[in-house]
Every structure is written in C-alpha cells, then in structure tokens.
Amino acid sequence: MAKRPDQREPFVVRLYVADRESTAVRAIANLEAVCREFLPNGCELEIIDILREPQRGLDDSIMVTPTLIKLAPPPVRRIFGDLSKRGRLLDALGLTGLEIAPRRP
C-alpha cells in the first residue's frame, strides 16, 4: 500500500538536461506540470545544464539526458527520459494514488 507523502515534507528534485534540446524542453515542461498538479506546497527544483556544468554531471554519473534525480523525500530515485510517460514518472516519484484525487479547492 502506497504511503501518502507528508505534504509538509520538502520535495527536492534535480534535473539534468543538455542545453535546450527538444528533450530538455519537454522534460522541464512535464516536470513542472507534475509539480503544479501534485505538489501544491511546491517543490525544490534544480535544473542543471550539463553543457554548462559538466563537472556536476560527472559527479552524479549522468549517463543520459534528461535525467531526473529525486533527492527527497527518500528513497533517492533516478528517472531518465523526457518524462513524457507520466505514469512511470509519478510511480518513481512516489506520487501514485494522488492522481485519483487531483485539484483540491
């Protein structure tokens, strides 16, 4: 049974993209949409352009772009791709179950 995330717990994600490629643009848009819909308390999102900060990509062993790392709440998860598959994204972020009751007043 999926445990509901504590709404007050900060939600921290880091997104690695390469420049402004189409996958990068799509990934950012998809992630922002999820944040809007499922994380009303907002989320801490860091977007890193690996072309500008390659060392950070090396530090995090980024193999493909885009790669999303959910740092908090635990467990740390990695999701790669342009995040267009919403079901998998929500599953990996631990937000499944929330989509049944969206848009609270």
């Binding site: 996958t23 390659p54 493909v64 772009t65 990695r78 999701i79 790669f80 791709g81």
Partner: peptide, 15 residues
Amino acid sequence: AVQAGTFDLSGLIAA
C-alpha cells in the same frame, strides 16, 4: 532507474 520517455547521450558526451 526508471525510463520515462525519450532521451539521448548528449549529457554524457558533454561531461
């Protein structure tokens, strides 16, 4: 790691 959509290697190449 979960795949959610298309991706490429440009990040790796850059790093």
